[in-house]
């Protein structure tokens, strides 16, 4: 059984590693569309996939936030990725699998995954 005691251990481990973390401000920004349209189209698994990748790769300088309906509901789930000092890139019709590639190629290596972008879809 999962107990609250485990949470104490997680707290200790996190505190031990927290000094190694970079400051989150100024890092990469990920915005997930979580309006009704986004949720209905599958934004939740997309969001959780980002969380999973951040945890797995220990990406301390990536911030994930939500936004409401952006207005192009038919292309949801939509995600905006902004690397520090770079133009915003909008990915459309995202899935958990696509998130893995976006994190590996774009967030980590700085190469936009063009085939998933709104430009490729339109």
């Amino acid at each position: 059984m999962k107990s609250l005691k485990e949470l104490e251990e997680i707290k200790q481990r996190t505190l031990d590693s927290v000094n190694l973390r970079q400051d989150r401000t100024g890092g990469t920004r990920v915005v997930v569309g979580m309006g009704t349209c986004g949720i209905a189209a599958g934004a939740r698994p997309v969001l959780l996939a980002f969380l999973e990748e951040i945890k797995k790769r220990n990406l301390g300088d990536v911030t994930v936030v939500q936004t409401g309906c952006i207005g192009v509901c038919r292309l949801e789930p939509m995600v905006e990725v902004t690397l520090p000092g770079e133009e915003k890139v909008t990915y459309v019709k995202m899935t958990a699998d696509k998130v893995k590639r976006v994190v590996a190629e774009h967030v980590v290596n700085g190469q936009v995954v063009s085939e998933f972008t709104i430009g490729a879809a339109e």
Partner: peptide
């Protein structure tokens, strides 16, 4: 309650969120 246990650790820390997920499913 979770926040109280965590103290200064962020509840939105990915490790904590993962734990919450498993805690609820369990």
């Amino acid at each position: 309650q979770i926040r109280e246990i965590l103290g200064e650790v962020d509840i939105a820390d990915p490790t904590v969120i993962q734990w919450i997920k498993e805690y609820i499913r369990n």
